[in-house]
Amino acid sequence: MTSATAASAAYSVPLPDGLTQRTLRFEDARAVTDLIAAQEVADVGEQVVELADVEADWSRPSHDLAASAVGVLDGERLVGYAEVTGGDRGDACVHPDELGRGIGTWLAGWLQDRARRLGATEIGMPVPQGSPGDRLLTALGWRVRWTSWVLQLPPGREVAAPTLPAGHAVREARPDDHRAAHEVVEDAFLEWSRRDRQDFADWSATTVGRPGFEPWCLRVVTDAAGVVVGAVHVVLSGEGAERTGFVDKLAVRADRRGLGFGQALLADAFAAARAHGATRSELSTDSRTGALGLYQRVGMEVTPTWLNRGVAL
């Protein structure tokens, strides 16, 4: 099926009365960001998403927005959205003022239909534990695939930087380190994540090509020969007292683990973010990685808990 065909193939179940649906365009990124933010504030008490997150994700060369995303409108106002973000993964949200109209049920059905059309055999999405979205998907028979946790370093606390083996160093990544960092991250994440390998162009769109990226945001640890054996990507978000340094990706090469490189990268990433104005230090991990205990041992504490719920198609 071509993207044009997929985009024009509407989900067969009718929308609730008074609502319309259409495919999304890149210029809808702001409206989608505002929609997700409203749901986040209602569900977890704060906005996490930024416009740069949506724009970076939609800028991936492999992502066909017209074929994989839909908006639900009440007049000209966007009140719900869903998209297949890749493979068996999706996302959806409904404005908290519009709950109870059947929008979420329609979006869940649309996600299943569109993912099936795009060749997936399963589709899942993250929802805050106990949220209206979590309760809806539970009622619709979506099972928990894995649990995710957002962890925060309490104010005034820092991650201790361990002493590294001789010849090793943590530093800001240079442009000629980018491909090596990508390889280290993908190799590590594919040890536990069931998905296709992300190519360098897609990875770059959400890291070094992300709006607002600065060279200090990507950091690596190198061995005595200068070979990259670990990498971390940190995102600076929010404003003022809520300025957050969020570790988006952290990985160490399999044969170099247990030597303190992960903790060294974490300590360095948070320190770099603080030097650029961050007042909070956060990251997210999930039950597939086995890393929760590691982050708790260095002093981080769980804040919101999210569930990735999915359903077979």
Rank of each mutant, 00 (worst) to 15 (best):
P128F: 14
L137C: 03
D187K: 00
A278F: 05
L136H: 10
G109W: 12
V127M: 10
A201P: 07
P96E: 10
A108Q: 12
R30M: 09
G87R: 11
V184T: 10
D91A: 15
V227T: 15
R309Q: 10
T206G: 04
A188L: 03
T20H: 05
L73R: 03
V170K: 02
I103M: 02
P211M: 06
E239C: 04
L266E: 10
V13N: 06
A291Y: 05
V247S: 04
G156A: 12
R274K: 14
F200L: 15
G240P: 04
A4P: 00
D53V: 05
A120R: 03
G141M: 03
W106H: 11
L15W: 13
L236N: 08
A272N: 06
R297N: 10
P126K: 05
S281E: 13
A241N: 07
E158V: 15
L250R: 03
V185G: 00
R219C: 03
E242L: 13
E186S: 10
M1N: 08
L294P: 00
R30Q: 15
G86P: 04
E301R: 15
T20I: 13
A231K: 06
F200P: 03
C217E: 06
E98G: 01
V311W: 10
P132I: 14
V221M: 03
V185T: 13
P126N: 11
V150A: 11
G45H: 07
T138R: 14
V72W: 04
L250W: 02
D91E: 14
D74I: 02
D57F: 13
A38N: 04
G119S: 08
P304T: 11
A241M: 13
H168F: 14
A42G: 01
R256M: 08
A69E: 00
F189I: 11
T285L: 06
W306Q: 03
D74L: 14
G104K: 07
E50A: 07
L153H: 08
V229R: 15
G124I: 09
M1A: 15
R243G: 01
G238A: 02
Y81Q: 02
D187C: 00
A29R: 06
